[in-house]
Each structure stands twice: as structure tokens, then as C-alpha cells.
Design a protein around this nucleic acid. Structure first.
Length: 498
RNA sequence: CGGGGUAUGGCCCAGUCCGGUUAAGGCGCCUGCUUUGGGAGCAGGAGAUCGCAAGUUCGAAUCUUGCUACCCCGACCA
């Protein structure tokens, strides 16, 4: 019936996960043509194939934001330095990683190059945005006067810069692409509701589109966004047992409204500060996507986000045979396209089928069809699925129906597989010895914590594990802190993280 | 930002210790023929101011100094 066609050939091309997980990731991002390093430290070039995936993510998320009442806008890249000193926690959080523009002109140097023109020093230095709260809240002050102007629900797609010491393609780059939502509300309750709504949007996107199961919760005070009252997050588990924060949604309270003096007149004719939220996901999701599903043969993409969902490889010797195959393939392409499935017919004459198989596998195309003389004779087509590496020969009738169904199955299967992996690597522990062992092993560890920064810090120093989140609807369960033995009201999730 | 490593055609790399003809090999690329159901074979060909900049020397891929980028480990952070 079905047979596996996995070969060992790929091992020569790609480091295996077992051998060196981070090397595997680096190799994969480069070899699957997603991105490469650029001439500037920590900055990457996102290549067309990688960008196509990001564009799909953008388009889906953008639709979800609009469906929940948000509008897009664009705020500037540069932020006056003075804005940064207005919200104390925020400054402290970002000051150490800001790129600063000090001059606005170059001039020719004696050796034929260019140098900064010292005469063109800026009156006030500009910060390249690490995030846009400050410039946005400075702007909102003018936009908001009455309760009638609320809620203000804005999102922007932008690049931001955080001068990171250590960078990795997609996971942590000095410049990255993201969306940042910034909303203003009349009441605290409404703002919290918004924060939670977006967390659900992120969770749905991760699970239904990326096929990546996530835990939802709030951050501990130590892990909270600088300037937030509460940070909500989604956390996913990567195949090496490390957690990855995939999205955050912040309840900002009135911190920024107060810092930037954003007030509205209520129905009762009282002057009040507005309540705020901000939330974002970034190109880091690309890294999450790669690590969540891919294998030693290359990328495994969820059909819903794959730029190419089906690739068709013709098998032939002579031109006449290619013509005959093409004749059969054309209606299949049309039928698939009519169902909204993206198809590529790989009729390059310069590569052999075996090479093409390996290449599309590396690039994670969910379904591959191969059609050759044998199929023409039998009215069949060979169908291979990327997630399980199985292939089978199917009758050509209603092939588009079968493929559409298969794509759904693949989407479901990779989610299940990731979910099973997470279940197998989730532990409840009640002793320090067990805690250390499980953290070392990797995975999510549910354990009691006494709620103090001190304990959290010591645990981090001893085990490198951090509190990934405090579950939102976690069962209240009284216990003893894993480290201090003090009383705890619920378990929190620990893991080593990216 | 601290410690360690690396940089030689598009890619992987030999040569560097101990300076001395034309910088070797593999992959890829180009041309031709044969091939095409799991990364094809043969023949011919093109492609390198040896990361960048100074210095030492009759002579530098090789020695010295500075700079830049990348990788690994730590601190920091999404």
C-alpha cells in the first residue's frame, strides 16, 4: 500500500536534529532559502521563499485584526529621544538596546570615501524605534478628547530595531518585522478584554494556521513587558524541548496615558486617563514555524501557510513524453487552482526528478505529485505527502478532491504531532530534584512557585529555567514552592527558553 | 559586552606553523553528447587582486597591528 521513501541522502546536506539542533536550524533556514545573513551584523535578508511565508502570515493576521475592529496606520521609524524618558519602566527596559541617529549628513573624506559631517549634528537625537508606544501615545494625545473617540483600535505593520548582542536568523535579529497593535479604552475592564481578545487571536492563529499548539498565560513580574501592568503571552514548545514566546499582548493600565497625558472627557463630564493595550507578533514566528514541524529532510510547512501547496514533477525521457504528461497535468492544475490550491508545475528540463523531489522536500511543500509514462498508461498519479514521507499511487479521477482532502489531513496531522510531542514533554513535578532533572531533560514543567522575584531568580541561576507563564485559567491548587517550600496557590510553567 | 574559534572562485575547503614559480581538490556554473519513476555520466571550459586596511620584506594567502563579519560558550534581552 503506502511506503516510506525517506532516504539517507539528505543527511549529507543537512545537519540532523540529533547531531546538533541549533546547527540543524541554521542550516535549514539557509538551505530552504528562507533567509540569509546580510553585511550588517545581526540583520538578515529575508529571501523570496521565506518572505512568501511571512506574507501569508501577515495576510491572515491582518484579516483577523480587521475582523475584530482594528484599522491599520503607520507611525514613524524615528522617535525623539526625549519621548523615551517619559515612562520610567519602559526606558529602563529598552535603553540598553537602542540604535541612535545623531547626524543627518555625510561628506566626502580625503581618501575618497565618506565620513559623518560633524557640522550636521542633530539638535535632538532620534531613536530608531525598538517599539512604538512612545511616539504613538504622543500622537494619541491629540486624537483622543472624548469618550466618543474611544475605543481607538490601531495596528501597524513595521520594522523595529533592538541592538541585540547575540542574534539568530528569525529568532532574534537586530532588525525585525512585526505588527504592533496599540489601543485606547474608556475602562480598565474594556482594555483587559481587548488584551485577552488579541491573545485568543494569536492562539487561534498559532494553532489553526501554523499548526503549533500554544499555552496561554500571563508573565511573572520579572518577565513582564517594560511599562506593562500585565503581559499575556502564548508559548510554544520546540522540538529540542525549549520554549518559545510566540506572541505577547500587554495590558498597559494608564501608564502611558499618564506619561503622555492622554485624557478623555467621560459621559459624566469628568476628565479621565485612558486605558491602554499593546500587542505584537514578529518574524520570530518564522523561526517557530521552522522548529515546530520540520525534520532531518528539511522544512515541513503547514498547508495553510505554504507558498506552494502542491508541486507536480513530470517524469519523461523524450520531449513527446513531456508533452503527453503536460497535457494531462494542465487540467489538474486548473482544477486545483479552482479550489484555491496553489500549484507549481516543475517542468524544468535542467534537473532530474530525483533532484526535484529532494529540493521540494527541503522546502517543505506539503504535497508532491509525480506523473510519468506509467501513470499515463494507467490513469494514475503518484502522490507523496511531506509530513509523513509516505507516497501512494492514486487514480486520476477527482484528484483535486483527494488533494484538497489530503491537505486538510496534513494540516491536522502536523498539529496533532506537535501536540503529542508537547504532551510527552510536559511534566508536573513536586520536588526540587525532580524539577532539576526534568528541566535538564527539556519540556514544560508545571510546578509550584511562591510568587517572589527572589525565588524566580535563584531558580533561573541554578537551572537556566524561567517562568514561561502563569496559566490564566489554571486550576487553583494549593501546594508548596518547589524551591522555597513556601505556600503556593497554583502551578506555573517553567522551561528553558529561546 | 567578556572568552574561544573562523574568514581562500557562488558553496565546501587544502595550502599558513617554517614567506619564494602558474593557489590544489570537490560541489555548483557554462558548452556538447548520452541520460531522466529518489540528488545522472563523460568530455571540454569559465571563474580568486586569498574578509578589509595599514605595516615588515627584494618578495606576503602565509609574519605584525588595527578593523569588519560569522559560529560556539557566557551575561543581557523577545
Amino acid at each position: 500500500m503506502q511506503r516510506l521513501y525517506q532516504t539517507l541522502i539528505m543527511a549529507k546536506e543537512l545537519t540532523s536534529r540529533e547531531e546538533n539542533y541549533s546547527q540543524w536550524y541554521n542550516d535549514l533556514v539557509i538551505k530552504a532559502d528562507l533567509a540569509e545573513n546580510s553585511a550588517v551584523r545581526g540583520s538578515m535578508v529575508i529571501k523570496p521563499y521565506g518572505f512568501a511565508i511571512w506574507e501569508k502570515m501577515q495576510s491572515v493576521l491582518d484579516g483577523m485584526f480587521k475582523d475584530t475592529g482594528h484599522q491599520n496606520a503607520y507611525f514613524p521609524l524615528f522617535i525623539p529621544k526625549s519621548f523615551f524618558s517619559k515612562e520610567a519602566d519602559h526606558v529602563e527596559g529598552f535603553a540598553k538596546e537602542c540604535a541612535v541617529v545623531t547626524h543627518y549628513r555625510l561628506k566626502n573624506s580625503e581618501d575618497g570615501g565618506v565620513v559623518v559631517d560633524e557640522d550636521a549634528k542633530l539638535e535632538e537625537e532620534l531613536i530608531v524605534r525598538p517599539t512604538s508606544e512612545t511616539i504613538i501615545w504622543d500622537t494619541y494625545r491629540n486624537w483622543i478628547q472624548s469618550y466618543r473617540d474611544l475605543p481607538l483600535l490601531i495596528n501597524q505593520w513595521a520594522n523595529v530595531v533592538r541592538w541585540e548582542m547575540r542574534t539568530r536568523l528569525f529568532l532574534r535579529t537586530a532588525e525585525f518585522l512585526w505588527q504592533e497593535g496599540h489601543t485606547a479604552h474608556e475602562t480598565k475592564e474594556e482594555a483587559i478584554k481587548e488584551t485577552e481578545l488579541i491573545l485568543d487571536v494569536y492562539g487561534d492563529f498559532a494553532e489553526k494556521w501554523m499548526g503549533m499548539p500554544v499555552l496561554k498565560g500571563v508573565k511573572s513580574a520579572k518577565e513582564r513587558f517594560a511599562g506593562a501592568v500585565e503581559t499575556y503571552c502564548i508559548e510554544a514548545l520546540m522540538q529540542d524541548g525549549k520554549a518559545l514566546q510566540a506572541g505577547t499582548s500587554h495590558f498597559l493600565g494608564q501608564n502611558f496615558a499618564k506619561a503622555f497625558d492622554v485624557k478623555y472627557v467621560s459621559k459624566e463630564n469628568k476628565l479621565e486617563h485612558v486605558w491602554a493595550t499593546s500587542w505584537g507578533v514578529s518574524t520570530r514566528l518564522m523561526g517557530a514555524l521552522v522548529m515546530a514541524h520540520s525534520d532531518d529532510n528539511g522544512l515541513v510547512l503547514p498547508p495553510k501557510l505554504a507558498p506552494i501547496q502542491v508541486v507536480i514533477v513530470p517524469i519523461y525521457r523524450k520531449q513527446e513524453q513531456l508533452d503527453a504528461v503536460t497535457e494531462k497535468v494542465d487540467p489538474i492544475i486548473n482544477a486545483l487552482k479552482a479550489k484555491g490550491i496553489s500549484v507549481k508545475f516543475d517542468d524544468r528540463d535542467t534537473y532530474k526528478p530525483g533532484f526535484k523531489f529532494a529540493e521540494w522536500e527541503l522546502k517543505g511543500v506539503p504535497v508532491r505529485l509525480a506523473i510519468g509514462p506509467r501513470d499515463l498508461e494507467n490513469g494514475t498519479v503518484e502522490v507523496a505527502r511531506r509530513d509523513t514521507l509516505e507516497k501512494e499511487v492514486l487514480q486520476m479521477e477527482d484528484i483535486e478532491e483527494k488533494i484538497a482532502h489530503l491537505l486538510e489531513q496534513i494540516q491536522e496531522n502536523i498539529f496533532q504531532k506537535a501536540l503529542n510531542f508537547r504532551d510527552e514533554n510536559t511534566f508536573r513535578v513536586d520536588s526540587w530534584e525532580e524539577f532539576e532533572a526534568k528541566i535538564e531533560q527539556g519540556g514544560f514543567v508545571w510546578a509550584h512557585w511562591d510568587g517572589t522575584d527572589e525565588t524566580e531568580q535563584i531558580i533561573k541561576e541554578k537551572t537556566k529555567a524561567t517562568i514561561r507563564l502563569i496559566p490564566i485559567d489554571g486550576k487553583q491548587e494549593v501546594g508548596k514552592c518547589i524551591y522555597s517550600g513556601n505556600v503556593s496557590e497554583q502551578r506555573v510553567v517553567f522551561a528553558k527558553a529561546y
